[in-house]
Write a protein that binds this DNA or RNA. Structure first.
Length: 756
DNA sequence: GAATCTCTTGTTTTT
DNA sequence: CAAGAGATTC
């Protein structure tokens, strides 16, 4: 392959980045400026021109989707499969390293990854044990504290107790949690990263091995790295050495940093230059910054809107996107009466797009929170428009699946307390609170896991005959499911099928004949297919690790861990986006967070209301930091659109069962009016009147009680809750409903929902 | 010990 | 509206 194929499709700045000779390169890439393309072509350049071996390259991303796409695009560009290249997410790579070096990392061989749900249960259990009132200190907060500490690389022992005066219990819970996880072979998401970092620091031979193995590290979405990820990269890149040959190539956009709540620090982009040049033995340029500002994605109007919104943020690195493209259409803002009307507008526009020959897969509906997908789904189903929802409750997160996985976990690793707790009495088998309390207490005082404790208690006849019998039945059941090495003669699918059958989970979840129950039974069946798929496809990273460890003395056998553990890790890390219907032609629904990195011809940004987006939690933060992250999220949303962008908000929205009124999002007012067309459909049979108790923002007008003209505004004083109103000119009548907005202001609501 | 009821309470985003 | 906790009844 000749160089022109790699370089021809690139502009000048992109080419400069791809061919960068600096040891460390930071690419500041605006939205739609060809960020992924630069990464992919950079790798192709390294392999084809600089003769770098693919497996001395490590490419890190944040999502599995991005990792998969990068691998795919590199393979298509180079026209060769690259099984041995290290491409993965931070968590995926960290997990892979820990599996290969579990002993050096101080973990149990069959350690399991727990999600935040399991984590909260464990925290709760500890709080109960040491008598901390959950009402006063929500487990969520403690959980957040633990994760935040880990994200910053701090273990309980490293925290200063003096800073916890009056909250010493936080530290106490943290260290007990660490101890419990260690003993039972459980690793949470933050722990994956922290352990991997500690592996570098504590095991010099491991670090040295990988420092010699890799010559190039590439990082996507660099603005999203948290402290521990950044430190991990820094150490691996040889920052601790006087001289290193490792080359780092990172790509990011400070304006698209949207994971601050997960510990990401934009500051890392600023620090990169000074932090990654310790090896200044410079025969060649040490570090360089390249800005990509030409946007190839969106129309001029969309880009201008995005620029205008993000300009309200302070402390940016400074980038101004431009396009050679034409202005295009104006953005359209639709003020809906409520979320049903909003969904109807969106679906109507989608039908129009399709009628004009547009593709469904070019359309995305984006929202701030996953719950907002529901009214849209309802409307799309009603009109028979195929769609697909990303995120939200994912396959492996469903209760019935987590139950099944807990059985598999316990069958794989008896020390897994989290799994034990989840299924010891699911389905119910006569093991009640009392028995469980005894097991927990004994386990606590003996510093033992629940499984072993239960066995001991039965042996020593310390339980009532009834409880002991029930517990014994459970123990026998799990033993019979055994998935440890001895089960190797059965395929994964056979083992899982057996577990689902003998656990009676299908009977348990399907007992009432509801649709919901039926779906659960089907999901359990689907789990077997998921196992089969996993067994067929395997983990592309595994091959890479095997290869890279071949030269590491007597370590190669450690790489091959129990296949069932591999599957469980896959379930925890991939969370199971449906893969089968990936290529089906349908409208895409997803949160703004999961939309990052994607693009669509037609985009709907829905729910642009003050309190929802920006979210009310962010508004309470008067420092503005959180609000700025919301604004970046809005920037991400706007820049997803290529041709057409619709922004919608509703005056009233059903939230936790009540109608809530809301003002339009401040972000809407930040878009220059000349870029926008305001749409308001009047040809539906829906009317909405509202006013606040203090007559803000509307003035009051005299009106005969019980008779309202279309479009007239009223106060609640004349029309109390339940008053019947004639809607002038329509012949319709409605009943007044009183609602409250986010600030607690009282409103009157009349809509099609109130028609009588 | 299990099932059912009532009550409260809490709601972003993801690996 | 939903999940979870706590109380009540079987």
């Amino acid at each position: 392959m000749d160089i022109s194929q790699i370089l021809d499709p690139l502009n000048k700045a992109q080419r400069r980045a791809v061919c960068s000779e600096a040891q460390n390169t930071l690419v500041l890439a605006g939205a739609g400026s060809g960020k992924t393309r630069v990464l992919v072509h950079r790798i192709a350049w390294l392999v084809q021109v600089e003769n770098v071996s693919p497996y001395s390259i490590m490419a890190v991303t944040f999502t599995n989707k991005a990792a998969g796409e990068m691998r795919f695009r590199i393979e298509s560009l180079l026209k060769t499969p690259l099984r041995n290249m290290w491409v993965g997410t931070f968590h995926g790579l960290a997990h892979r390293l820990l599996r290969a070096h579990w002993m050096d990392a101080g973990l149990l061989e069959n350690f399991q990854i727990i999600d935040s749900d399991d984590q909260r249960r464990l925290v709760k259990r500890i709080m109960k044990e040491i008598g901390i009132d959950e009402k006063q200190h929500p487990p969520r907060e403690v959980q957040w504290f633990i994760n935040d500490s880990k994200d910053n690389g701090l273990r309980a022992a490293q925290l200063n107790p003096r800073e916890f005066r009056g909250r010493e219990f936080m530290l106490d819970i943290y260290s007990r949690y660490e101890e419990l996880c260690q003993r039972t072979g459980l690793v949470d998401f933050a722990e994956l990263l922290l352990r991997a970092h500690e592996l570098w620091l504590k095991q010099a031979h491991v670090l040295k091995h990988y420092q010699q193995h890799f010559s190039h590290i590439l990082v996507d979405e660099f603005q999203d790295t948290n402290t521990i990820q950044y430190a991990w990269l820094k150490v691996l890149s040889g920052n601790n050495l006087p001289q290193t040959n490792m080359s780092s190539f990172v790509v990011g956009d400070d304006d698209q940093s949207i994971y601050g709540w997960r510990g990401a620090k934009i500051q890392h982009i600023r620090d990169f230059n000074s932090d990654f040049n310790a090896s200044a033995a410079a025969e060649k340029e040490v570090s360089t910054i390249i800005k990509l500002e030409q946007n190839y994605r969106s129309t001029g109007n969309i880009l201008q809107a995005a620029n205008a919104v993000i300009a309200n943020n302070s402390d940016r690195l400074g980038k101004e996107l431009w396009t050679a493209d034409s202005e295009g259409e104006r953005l359209q803002i639709y003020q809906a009466f409520n979320e049903i009307d909003e969904a109807a507008y969106v679906a109507g526009q989608i039908e129009k797009w399709i009628d004009n020959g547009g593709k469904r897969s070019d359309i995305a509906i984006l929202y701030r929170s996953n719950a907002q997908s529901q009214p849209h789904e309802y409307e799309l189903v009603k009109r028979g428009i195929p769609y697909r929802v990303y995120g939200g409750l994912r396959f492996y997160d469903r209760a019935e699946i987590k139950d099944a996985l807990a059985y598999i976990r316990l069958a794989t690793n008896r020390q897994d307390d989290a799994a034990f707790e989840r299924i010891v009495n699911t389905p119910t088998r006569g093991i009640g609170q009392r028995t469980l309390e005894i097991i927990r207490d004994t386990a606590k005082s003996n510093q033992d896991n629940l499984w072993q404790t239960a066995n001991t208690l039965i042996e020593n006849k310390q339980l009532s005959a009834r409880a002991a019998a029930a517990l014994q039945k459970f123990i026998d059941l799990i033993d019979e499911m055994d998935c440890t090495a001895e089960a190797a003669e059965f395929s994964l699918a056979e083992q899982v099928t057996h577990i689902i059958e003998t656990s009676l989970l299908k009977e348990y979840h399907g007992k009432d004949n509801s649709e919901r129950a039926q779906a659960k039974v089907e999901n359990l069946g689907e789990l077997i297919n998921a196992v089969k798929r996993f067994d067929d496809e395997g983990d592309p990273l595994l091959d890479a690790v095997k290869e890279s460890l071949e030269d590491m003395l007597d370590k190669s056998e450690e790489v091959l861990s129990n296949p069932m553990s591999e599957f469980l890790a896959h379930a925890a890390l991939e969370a199971g986006e449906g893969q089968a219907d990936e290529w089906e032609e349908c409208v895409q629904l997803m949160s703004l967070h999961s939309a990052k990195g994607l693009e669509f011809e037609l985009v709907f940004l829905s729910g642009l209301e003050q309190g929802l987006f920006p979210h009310k939690n962010a508004l309470q933060d008067y420092v503005g930091g959180k609000l700025e992250e919301e604004r970046r999220l809005c920037y991400v949303g706007i820049t997803r659109a290529r041709q057409q962008l619709h922004l919608t908000h509703a005056e009233s929205r059903t939230m936790y069962g009540r109608n809530e009124m809301a003002y339009a999002s401040q972000f809407l007012t930040e878009i220059p009016a000349e870029l926008v067309t305001q749409v308001r459909a009047v040809n539906n049979n829906m009317s909405s009147f509202h006013s606040s108790e203090n007559n803000k923002p509307f003035s009051t007008h005299d009106s005969n009680e019980g008779d309202i003209a279309l479009g007239q505004r009223v106060t609640h004083k004349k029309f109390g809750e339940g008053t019947v109103i004639d809607i002038e000119g329509s012949g319709a009548r409605a009943r007044v409903q009183v609602s409250f907005d986010y600030e607690g202001t009282r409103w009157l609501m009349l809509s099609v929902a109130n028609l009588i």
